[in-house]
Nucleic acid binder design. Sequence first.
DNA 1: ATGATCACTGTAAACCTTTTCATCAACCGA
DNA 2: TCGGTTGATGAAAAGGTTTACAGTGATCAT
Lengths: 311, 311
Amino acid sequence: MAGVSTATVTRALSSPEVVRPATRERVREVAASLGYHPNRAARGLITGRTGNLGLLVPDLANPFFPSIVKGVQGRAHEADHAVFLADTDEDPAAEAGLVRKLAKQVDGMVLCSPRMAEAELRELAAEVPTVLVYRRIPGVPSVTAEFLDGMRQAVSHLVALSHKKIAYVAGPRSSWANRERVRSLRAVTRKSEVELTEFGNVAPQFHGGVSVADSVLASNVTAVIAYNDLVALGLLHRFAARGVSVPGDISVLGFDDIPLAEMVHPALTTVALPKEEAGQAGVDLLLDRKPAVRRELPTQLMVRGSTGPAR
Amino acid sequence: MAGVSTATVTRALSSPEVVRPATRERVREVAASLGYHPNRAARGLITGRTGNLGLLVPDLANPFFPSIVKGVQGRAHEADHAVFLADTDEDPAAEAGLVRKLAKQVDGMVLCSPRMAEAELRELAAEVPTVLVYRRIPGVPSVTAEFLDGMRQAVSHLVALSHKKIAYVAGPRSSWANRERVRSLRAVTRKSEVELTEFGNVAPQFHGGVSVADSVLASNVTAVIAYNDLVALGLLHRFAARGVSVPGDISVLGFDDIPLAEMVHPALTTVALPKEEAGQAGVDLLLDRKPAVRRELPTQLMVRGSTGPAR
DNA sequence: ATGATCACTGTAAACCTTTTCATCAACCGA
DNA sequence: TCGGTTGATGAAAAGGTTTACAGTGATCAT
C-alpha cells in the first residue's frame, strides 16, 4: 500500500534513520491506518530475541511478592518487554519444569526467591539468562537487600528502647532468606549486650506466628523479631486474643514491610525490604546482560506502633 | 537423526496416532535425547495459535487480585498455556494499549475488572477473544459473582442481629462492582425494615475507609457495610484509634474476603467473593470458545468478629 | 499378474519478519 | 567526463514448524 517492499517497511518501523524521511512517514501512516503491528513471534523467529521475560514466584498469595511482580512488570514494559508469570505454589519440584517450559519463549528469567537446590539453579542459569531476586548463589546475577544493615537498625532500635532479651522467630530452615536473617542477627547481637533466644522454625505465614506466640510469651523476652511480617501479624493476633498489650508487655518487629503492616492496630514496626525496586533491578540486570553482577539494595526500619520501651 | 523427515517428526510428536508405532518411538527417543522441544513461536506462526493467554489486572497490590491471578495461572498451566501478566496501575487509559500489544501473541485475554469504557471494551473484544472477570457487558463472555445474593446474606445477618440503621460506604462511582453493590443493596433493603444511609464515594483502599470513618460514626447507624475489605479495614483502624468498640458500638462488614480479613483483630465479617475460582472459570470460558457465555459464581458470607448485636 | 486400497511417510509451501547483499541513481571530486 | 561514494531501496534467504498433497510399498481381491 505504501508502494515499497516489505524490507523498507520493516526498516521504516525499526530502524527509522536508514530510510528516507518522506518514505518513512508514508509507511508509518499506512501502517497506522491499517492498525499494523509487527508479529512478535515471527520477529523472534529470526532475531532470536522474543521481547519476553519470564518471572517465577513461589506464591502470589504471599503479599511480599505482588510488589516485586509489579516492579518487574513495570520495568519490563518500559523496556518494551512482555512478562510471563508463573506461580509455583511453593513447590520446589515444579520450579525447574516451569522455567524450562518458558525458557524457549523468553530472553531471560527472573527467579524470585527460588526454593530449589543450588546445583539445579546453577544448571538452569546455564540454559537461560537468569537473574535471582532474594536469593544469592555464586556466579549468577542476583538482587538482594542489605539484611545485615536492616538487622542492625532493628536491634539498635530495640536497644534504644532498653530491651535486653529478645526473641527471633525463625522461618523455614530451607529458606535462604531465613538463613541470612539468622546469620545477620547473630552477628549483630554478638557485639551488643542483647541476649537472643531463637524460636521456630515456623511456616512463613500468619498461622506460623499464631502457633509460636504462646511459647514466646512464656519466655521472658521483652521484644520479638519475626521472620517476616506475616509471622509478626500472627503473633500480634494471638497476643491481642490473650489480652497481652503490644507494645506495653512486649514489642513486636517484623521484616518485609508488606502493605498490611500499617493497616493493623497497633501498626507493625518492621524492616522494609525493597520490593518494586528489587523487581526493577532484576529486569535491569537481565537486559543489561552484564556478566555476574550482584546488587544489594538498602533496607529501612519503619518504626510504627508495635515497638515501645521495655517493660 | 531418526532417519525420517521433519514432517514425520512433527507428526510423531503432535499427532502420535497417525505414525507407525516403531517410527514414533524412535523419533521420540531421539527427540528426548536431544532435549528437543518444538519452538512455540514457529508453531504459532503457522497454526495461528500461540498457547499463550493474556491477563490484565488493575493493580496487583490490591490483595483481591493476586488470588484471581493464581486461579488463571493455575488453570492455564493445566491446559498447557503460559500466561502474560499486565498490571495497568489503575490507569484506564493504559488498558487498551496493553491489550493490543499482547493481543498478537495470545490466544485470548482475561480482563480482570477492566476500568475502561464499555464501548472501548466491546471494540477490543471484537479484536481478540476476550473474557471479562468481575465486569459484565452484553455480548462478551464474563465471570462474575452473585452480588445480590451476597448482599442478601449480609443484610439478613445484620437484621438477625437487630440492626435497623445501616450505612454503606460506596467505592468509586466509575466502578462497575460498586454500581452492582449499590443496586443489590438498595434492592435488598427496600424489602426489609432496614434504613440505609450511603457514604462516599471513597477510594477503594485502606485510606478511603480511614477518611470516611468519622462521618459514619457521626451518623446514628449501628452497622456499616463497606465497598470492600480494604475500606472496611480502614474503618476498623480509625475506629480502634478513636476507642470505638467493634462490634460493641458498631458492626463492620466488608466485601471480597481478602486474606487480611481474618488476620486483623477483631477479624472482619465479610462477603467472600470467589477469586481463584473466578480466574479458573475465566480461563475455561476462554479455551472452550463457547460464544457469549456468562457465569455467575456463588458468594458466601463469612461471619467473624466484627459484627455483633446492635447496641 | 493387475489394479485398487490402505497405512504410512516425504516434499514443498506457508506463516511473518529481519537481514544480507545487490542494485540503482545521484552526487562528488578530479 | 568519469570512477568512486553515498544513500535509499528491493530481492531473496533464513528462522522452525505445520499441513495439503503426492508418493511409496504392501496387501488384497480379481
